[in-house]
Amino acid sequence: MQDRDGQERGAAQNPNADNPSQASSETSVTTDSPASETAAAFTGVLKPLGILDKGVAMFEAAVLTVGILAMAVNSVANVIGRFIFGQSLYFSEELNQFLVILVTFAGVGFAARHGRHIRMSAIYDELPDKLRKALMVAIALITGAIMFLLAWYSFEYVYSVYGTGRIAPVTQVPIFLTLVWLPLGFMITGIQYVLTALVNLTRPDVYLSVTVVDSYEDTETQL
């Protein structure tokens, strides 16, 4: 997302720049986007898919929230265990590794949905609207294709880990179970980018993601 209020467009257009106190380090994301936004890609026959998409979005948000809080609880519990009970939680490290994978790969799709992936858009931003739109369609399609490819490779990889039967030493959980998020996350991300291409092809504005319009008027979006 970061490029929408790019310097190239002139800091003056960036409300944050006008009022530095607002350009806070605020890191939170408004994820309950207006219905019209979420539905951007899902018009006509695609409407039922919109419901599914919303469900996926809510699931991702829940996974991120729970994942991060679980990491915090798990790590704090480990410290408390060591200090108060003189007993480290040996599963703590394995649980955290699992949570990092979970959060990363659930978050990739979520970030794609909200146009939050980091880009260097200095050149892209200089292009006229039409060209930007065309480029965005190409970027979205190629990115989507690469995500599908990774979904396939990660499926193969997870399957081969399943084949070896490797287990986590402490929790004795089969490693492949901790990895099932990979193919899923990449696939959801791929779908997000295909949808982005679709929205750009069917709508007048330039869309950065299904929910985020990449245009001058939109610079104050909270995302």
Partner: peptide, 18 residues
């Protein structure tokens, strides 16, 4: 952090710390 090493040092009387 592997169960047998943790157990070893538990039995040796230490506080195994991952």
């Amino acid at each position: 952090t592997t169960p047998l090493l943790v157990e070893t040092y538990n039995q040796f009387g230490a506080t195994p710390t991952p």
